[in-house]
């Protein structure tokens, strides 16, 4: 026979677990951030250098034939070197977002976006940096000779519907 105290304890644990589950579900549902699946063959190496206190992420969007975009997911650039897989033969739209916050300066976010259409069997390097309030994103295609050729940034407005 269970005592009243034990029954209350079981009830508390049940309701606490249920509440926690509901809150977590709500938080997950409310958050629009989806982690980029990154399941494709890795064809892009991202080299990141940022000041401490600066968070860098890439939002990746699939570009549809009509130039509309669909959010694929976000990659947090929390390692100096990361390998990602982008689909070849079609364009991806990438938005690089730098967020920083300080006690006196408040929080701020600046972004840089470009289209990239990776070619099959070609590897790409993306150098991402944010140092002393200066940021840069440079994309190189790695040639067969192991030389690198810079690829010019293209805005979404440059996309031509098929």
């Amino acid at each position: 026979m269970k005592s009243a105290g034990a029954e209350m304890d079981v009830n508390f644990k049940y309701w606490f677990s249920l509440t926690l589950l509901v809150v977590l579900s709500m938080l997950t549902a409310c958050s629009a951030v989806k982690i980029y699946p990154n399941t494709l063959d890795k064809n892009v190496r991202v080299n990141t250098k940022t000041d401490s206190g600066v968070e860098a992420v890439i939002e990746i969007y699939e570009v549809k034939p009509d130039c509309g975009i669909e959010y694929s997911g976000t990659i947090q650039l929390d390692n100096p070197v990361m390998e990602i897989g982008l689909p070849t033969g079609r364009s991806s739209y990438m938005v690089f977002i730098f967020s920083s916050s300080g006690f006196f300066t408040g929080s701020s976010t600046i972004s840089y976006d470009t289209l990239l259409r990776p070619r099959k069997s070609i590897r790409y390097d993306i150098d991402v940096s944010y140092r002393d309030d200066i940021y840069n994103v440079v994309i190189h295609e790695r040639l067969a000779s192991n030389k690198r050729q810079e690829i010019e940034a293209k805005s979404l407005a440059d996309c031509k519907p098929l």
């Binding site: 701020s108 976010t109 600046i110 840089y112 940096s129 002393d132 200066i134 940021y135 840069n136």
Partner: peptide
Amino acid sequence: ETLIKAIKGWAAGENIGCPDLTK
């Protein structure tokens, strides 16, 4: 200051990048 620093970098061809215009 950030814009000025960036443009000086562009002119000198050193430390080339974009100024964070929110700063």
